[in-house]
Simulated assay, not measured.
Amino acid sequence: MGQFIVGRILSGIVVIFGISILSFLLIHFIPGDPVRIMLGQNATPDQIERLTVYLGLDQPLLVQYGHYISNVLQGDLGTSLKTGQPVLTEILDRFPQTVKLAAAGISFAIVIGFTVGTLAAKFKDTFIDRMAMGFAMLGVSIPGFWLAILLIMVFSVKLGWFPIAEGTGLRDLVLPSITLGVLASTIISRLTRNGMVEVLSKDYIRTARAKGLDERVIIVRHALRNVLLPIVTVIGLQIAGLLGGTVILEQVFNWPGLGTLAIGAISSRDFPLIQGTVLFMGIVYVSINILVDISYGMIDPRVDLSMKEES
């Protein structure tokens, strides 16, 4: 297992290195003069020259990347052109709010997804199964921003139960976490249902029932554990995506996370902040994926991680 972990970490470093190249090249992909775009059309030649030198754009590309990656390895992602604050400070100020929203959303999704999927499998081909899978299909089809606006209209505007984008307290967290949870739970519920239907027909489940074990024990201890691996993979990807910033939903709910930070950086043409946010999101995504792969052996000891690495 140690060899597998080292291999995954090394491959993750390679991916992060590729992300660093892409984030560095963002400023060079822009048509035209990036410095003039940042400063606007009324910028003087002196301002353009000073910002060009400050960003190091007057140097060869390889030299620029060398300085960039050297600074990144020291924890320096640059300085925001808008606020004058270090980019890493700006990101770390917003990241806890993104973690809070992601944790609430994925917790809601796991509870609803497992419950709906298990009930659908338990009552396969019944009205409950059809209702559960209809809910899952509806959740997949609904655009996230539309569901968010609908919840705001009903529970904030009409009923007045929750505030409209006023802060980051628990009441402000309810609607965005429900939105994220509903969208994420649909995939979890479908995977849980399909896996449970197959497992519940196995001989060892029939044997457990013949021994008189409680049905809840059979489902939780014997059935659910055997369908966790593909579900954990999906949950891990969803967590990584949420921690990377839910751009649209954060905008709708005015939630001060990484998503709104990225949108603000794009609007203000703050390219150092854009570069830093992209790189940080990529590192978070890769790190979560590595942790998910490592967790396989903990969830099911029968999984041979060395074989997984060879495949």
Rank of each mutant, 00 (worst) to 15 (best):
L101M: 15
A102M: 02
A102C: 09
A103Y: 07
A104T: 11
A104Y: 14
A104C: 09
A104I: 08
G105R: 00
G105I: 00
G105D: 13
G105C: 02
I106R: 03
I106H: 05
I106K: 05
I106N: 12
I106G: 04
S107G: 13
F108P: 04
A109C: 07
A109E: 05
I110F: 07
I112V: 06
I112T: 13
G113L: 04
G113N: 11
G113Q: 07
F114V: 07
F114I: 09
T115E: 01
T115F: 09
T115L: 11
V116H: 05
V116T: 08
V116A: 04
V116Y: 03
V116M: 01
V116R: 03
V116G: 02
G117N: 13
G117Y: 06
G117K: 11
T118W: 06
T118N: 08
T118R: 01
L119N: 03
L119I: 12
A120G: 11
A120V: 06
A120Y: 05
A121H: 10
K122R: 12
K122T: 13
F123S: 09
K124N: 15
K124C: 12
K124T: 07
K124R: 15
D125Y: 12
D125V: 08
D125M: 03
T126A: 08
T126P: 14
T126N: 15
T126Y: 09
F127L: 15
F127G: 12
I128V: 14
D129P: 03
D129Y: 02
D129F: 02
D129K: 06
R130C: 01
R130E: 11
M131H: 08
M133I: 04
M133Y: 04
G134R: 03
F135W: 10
F135H: 10
A136F: 00
A136T: 06
M137I: 09
M137N: 14
L138H: 05
L138S: 14
L138I: 07
G139Y: 02
G139T: 09
V140E: 13
S141E: 13
I142Q: 09
I142A: 04
P143L: 12
G144D: 12
G144W: 01
G144Q: 10
G144P: 07
G144R: 06
F145L: 07
W146D: 01
W146Y: 09
L147G: 00
L147P: 00
A148D: 00
A148N: 09
I149T: 14
L150K: 00
L150R: 01
L150Q: 03
L151W: 03
I152P: 05
I152V: 06
I152S: 13
V154I: 15
V154Q: 10
V154S: 02
F155W: 09
V157N: 04
V157A: 07
K158N: 11
G160T: 06
G160H: 12
G160R: 10
G160D: 14
W161M: 06
W161S: 03
